[in-house]
Design a binder for these strands. Structure first.
Length: 465
RNA sequence: GGCGCGGUGGCAGAGUGGUUAUGCAGCGGACUGCAACUCCGUGUACGCCGGUUCGAUUCCGACCCGCGCCUCCA
């Protein structure tokens, strides 16, 4: 298996530290607002990655954290006039709902920063002990960037050049403008925890170093996250962890591509972001998921109505092929016929840095064969190929719906299934009476309501346009 | 300015030193009462300019354009 490693900027053969086992940590979200499409992208990307690793027989330990103490959280809670834990609990629940709707399997562990304050304090103490951190006069504790030799190795930045680019408003308490906070002294009235350096709370990056090390050990296999975390977050995590443990931190760094809107980065600061739930109000969850996997996980994707529409049309082709065929059974990946050419091509694609778009192309070829088999009345082949299609789709987290249910899924305010069925019955009678004008009138009427009719030897079926 | 990524047919989006990506849309045909679905056929696509090569979209160099990070952000 090949995986692109941000650290080396190339694809590498993947070898886990311990044979047969994979330890993976992915940066989850800071819970002060609803998940947006960027979060969905990371969630889906690593969901597919974890499914494939497991399918290949690895015993995976997938840890995805929640950052539930942070400046933005406190500011938002203050604006709302609520306790910060009420805020974080609400958005954690919302995040779980969004993830579930997108078909994201829960991670094996979901540690929260506030649940690891002791580990954070222990790591900070260790960094001070080793000379990599210092307590400043203002009560903050900072990481001493100049002390860490490998600083910049992930993001490709040179420590010297960072100096000139560093913020103009240099905090006087820092020895060096590049230094970053490990511990922030509490302002009056703020939530805080006791520490040897006074009341305060963790800085932004230390929680991930503490939680990952705590859950997975000093050195683990894969660390992932969104594209904008490379610098400074992941760079700082490396600096913290490797300085504290004296050992290499994550072996492979994986980063998802950016989500853009109108060719501009979607971000909170630009205010052009879409939340998962507002998109889910307009599109079937599987359409959203399909949109996210139809580009390689590392490339940038552009959110647009057209692209979501294309995703839906693509899925319609799959579900048309699966019409009338059972959802079950789905065969576990390792029990699929190894000599099957679709399985082989699918696996070749996925084992090459999780190339889902290529895997989807294989599935479309399988659809064509399935459609041909169906036209030829080869029932056994149809059943077999449909099961294979479902099974391979399951690895990507798609094609798990009942075909008619997917094709007929609509939103409130549209024609109800009952109304549609009744009109179809009327049309069947009209056809029997050879009253084609009336039959076509009903077809046109339904089409206006967004419903497409499909006649076949077995009868008339319908779907939403 | 520093570092990095990318420019593929009407659209989306893979990939490759010489042979079909795939899907949608279009066109022609089959099927259909009409449609839809499906099937068959159909596209001289690889930003520009040089170089290497028998041959480059695919490797190398320069250039143009777009984007990202360098500041909170997945």
């Amino acid at each position: 298996m090949q995986i692109y490693n941000t650290l080396s900027r190339k694809k590498e053969a993947f070898t886990p530290i311990e044979a047969g086992k994979v330890k993976m940590y992915v940066c989850g979200m800071t819970v002060y607002d609803y998940c947006h499409l960027g979060h969905a992208r990371v969630l889906v990307a690593f969901d597919v990655i974890s499914r494939y690793l497991r399918a290949k027989g690895y015993e995976l330990n997938y840890v995805r954290n929640i950052t539930d103490i942070d400046d933005k959280i406190l500011r938002r809670a203050d604006e709302n006039g609520e306790d910060y834990t009420a805020l974080t609990e609400r958005f954690i629940t919302a995040m779980h709902e969004d993830a579930e709707r997108l078909g994201i399997a829960p991670p094996d562990a979901e540690p929260r920063a506030t649940g690891h304050i002791e580990d954070i304090l222990a790591m900070i103490a260790r960094l001070i002990e080793r000379g990599f951190a210092y307590a400043a006069d203002n009560g903050d504790v900072y990481y001493r960037v100049s002390r860490f030799e490998g600083y910049g190795k992930l993001s490709g930045k040179k420590p010297d050049e960072l100096l000139s680019g560093a913020r103009i408003a240099v905090d006087e308490a820092k020895e060096d403008p590049r230094d970053f906070a490990l511990w922030k002294a509490a302002k009056s009235g703020e939530v805080s925890w006791p520490s040897p350096w006074g009341e305060g709370r963790p800085g932004w990056h230390i929680e991930c170093s503490a939680m990952s090390t705590c859950c997975l050990g000093d050195n683990f296999d894969i660390h992932g996250g969104g594209p904008d975390l490379v610098f400074p977050h992941h760079e700082n995590e490396i600096a913290q962890s490797e300085a504290a443990t004296g050992k290499p931190y994550a072996n492979t760094w994986m980063h998802a591509g950016a989500v853009r809107v109108d060719n501009e980065k979607m971000s909170k600061s630009l205010g052009n972001f879409f939340t998962i739930r507002e998109i889910l109000d307009k599109y079937h969850p599987e359409v959203v998921r399909y949109f996210l996997i139809s580009s390689h996980y590392r490339s940038a994707i552009n959110y647009s109505e057209d692209n979501l529409q294309i995703a839906r049309q693509n899925l319609e082709r799959f579900y048309h092929a699966l019409k009338g065929l059972p959802v079950e059974p789905v065969t576990p990946y390792n029990e699929l016929p190894a000599d099957n050419r679709y399985v082989q091509r699918f696996d070749a694609a996925m084992s090459d840095d999780f190339a889902a778009p290529e895997a989807l192309a294989v599935l479309f070829d399988l659809v064509r064969e399935l459609n041909n088999a169906r036209a030829a009345g080869e029932d056994a082949a149809v059943t077999e190929q449909a099961a294979l299609l479902r099974s391979l789709g399951a690895l990507l987290g798609i094609l798990g719906c009942e075909a008619e249910a997917f094709l007929q899924a609509g939103s409130a305010g549209e024609l109800s299934a009952e109304e549609i069925e009744s009109l179809i019955a009327e049309r069947v009678q009209a056809k029997k009476d050879r009253d084609f004008a009336r039959a076509d009138g009903i077809r046109a009427q339904l089409l206006e309501g967004g419903v497409v009719l499909e006649d076949s030897r077995e009868g008339t079926t319908w779907r939403r346009a």
